[in-house]
Nucleic acid binder design. Structure first.
Lengths: 173, 173
DNA sequence: GGCGACCGCTTCCGTTCTGCAAGCGGTTGT
DNA sequence: ACAACCGCTTGCAGAACGGAAGCGGTCGCC
């Protein structure tokens, strides 16, 4: 089992825990999309994760203490996945990844809106977001500010604008 | 060539460019260790990267525009690898990875010193560091502040302290 | 000018990881 | 009872990884 660590460097250790092509995608979907079940993570995945890879990542993230799982009272065989505190503290990292990606990668305009908003909001917004996640995932009290709401509003507005635009484009074809 | 993009999400695109187990290690070593040649990246690698993997990563990072390569005037067959601007802008991301790793992973005390300093310095220190990197890699003017110097001083102090400690431990064995 | 050390980088090969499709046994709603 | 759905597994092919040896070229040195 190649579980031994390559070095004690914090950057390296972070890479070893979440530095693969899927772990942060799963965490992103739970975090920003509030997808809590296996099936929603699988089917609503923008990047089309394979079911075996998803199962494997959930297992690893549970083992690493980044996620927790409890059974869903409404369905005997479902589990509800929640972010643990270490995963919630990935918010600044994900925000930086979003900022970098929208500058240096061919990101889609609509999907950039949230990244841009999170960048403009800065650390204060990240902290509010983390508080909200603690409410949703760790039974902390509901904070006043809803960053998820702000992100959703901005995203919906951008999606509507894009649809209007593509309607117009379709009409002129 | 599995080069097609999975989605236009900025986080996903960042992952696709540098979200593997080695790319950011290579960039980290060039950035913090100022290792500019193939051999130094290979032999001084804390994590013992294999030469074929290193060659592959350098090729990819060059193709992605994160690194540049020029030939070394002192040795006909050597190349000097430099960070391009997009790689320099990974500083905040690497800083966040360091911060997360030292909190949530079993990071070595000595190697944590730099991550902690970079965290305490905050965005102002990151900006100074990026300016210094632009001087070292992009022929920008030398800035007043040397973050690399600060990091080295702190690291050396920690290493000395650790050595003293292990000497003492050895003596009492 | 010959020789050993070193240079960037490649090749080989066994192991592991990924991506895709199908499917399993159990649960739920009708 | 039955179909739809649930979390998750299996099988398999191709890609990526990791370790070791090695290739042709270059350098410093006597």
């Amino acid at each position: 089992m190649g579980e031994r660590r390559r070095s004690g460097c914090p950057i390296n250790l972070t890479l070893e825990m979440v530095g693969d092509r899927w772990s942060l995608i799963v965490i992103r979907d739970i975090m920003f999309g509030n997808r809590r079940h296996f099936r929603t993570l699988l089917n609503q995945s923008e990047e089309r994760i394979a079911s075996n890879v998803l199962a494997d990542r959930l297992r690893r993230l549970l083992a690493a203490g980044l996620l927790t799982r409890r059974s869903d009272p409404t369905h005997r065989q479902k589990g509800i996945y929640s972010l643990a505190e270490p995963a919630i503290q990935l918010v600044p990292l994900l925000a930086q990844m979003g900022s970098w990606g929208l500058r240096h990668a061919p990101a889609s305009e609509t999907l950039c809106v949230r990244a841009r908003l999170l960048e403009e909001g800065g650390p204060a917004m990240w902290r509010a977001f983390m508080d909200e996640l603690r409410h949703l995932h760790l039974d902390a009290p509901r904070p006043r500010r809803s960053v998820i709401g702000e992100l959703k509003t901005a995203f919906d507005a951008a999606a509507t604008a894009r649809d209007r635009h593509s309607d117009r484009a379709a009409r002129t074809e």
